[in-house]
């Protein structure tokens, strides 16, 4: 279990345009003890500022991407979270960039980065030396 404050980024394609805001939250709550939702969360969440192909558009758009990402940076800062769970490759790149740009002091991770460390491993999948 994560014990430090955790927040959750609702990617537009997953929450507003995917209808999975609730499921995402349930999963986050199962993984941490101090979950803090952002203001404007769920279906109402703001885009990370890197969506719609903004990140792959590359360096010519970087400065504008950082400027317009201010809203997301503020949203994250307000929660006081140390870890942001981000189930989207696009959002995670943007949030890591924002972390540097706005000095947020956070770690952005995917679900799949943390779940393997927390899941219960069935006995038959453990190697001998580990089960000793």
């Amino acid at each position: 279990m994560l014990t430090e404050p955790v927040t959750y980024q609702d990617p537009c394609n997953i929450s507003r345009n995917g209808g999975l805001a609730k499921q995402g939250r349930e999963l986050v709550k199962a993984l941490c003890t101090d979950f803090r939702d952002m203001r404007d969360n769920g279906d109402y969440n703001h885009c990370c500022g890197g969506g719609g192909g903004y990140i792959p558009m590359g360096p010519p758009f970087k400065r504008r991407r950082m400027e317009s990402g201010r809203v997301k940076a503020e949203q994250i800062r307000e929660t006081g979270a140390k870890t942001v769970i981000v189930p989207c490759h696009n959002c995670i790149d943007q949030i890591r960039d924002l972390n540097k740009e706005y000095d947020l002091g956070i770690k952005a991770v995917h679900f799949k980065t943390i779940i393997p460390h927390m899941m219960i491993i069935p006995d038959d999948m453990k190697h001998e030396e580990e089960s000793e």
Binding site: C12, R16, F61
Partner: peptide
């Protein structure tokens, strides 16, 4: 269209 909008669709709400 490419640089000032990410087509996040929040405005539709």
């Amino acid at each position: 269209v490419y640089g000032d909008c990410t087509a996040c669709r929040r405005c539709s709400m």
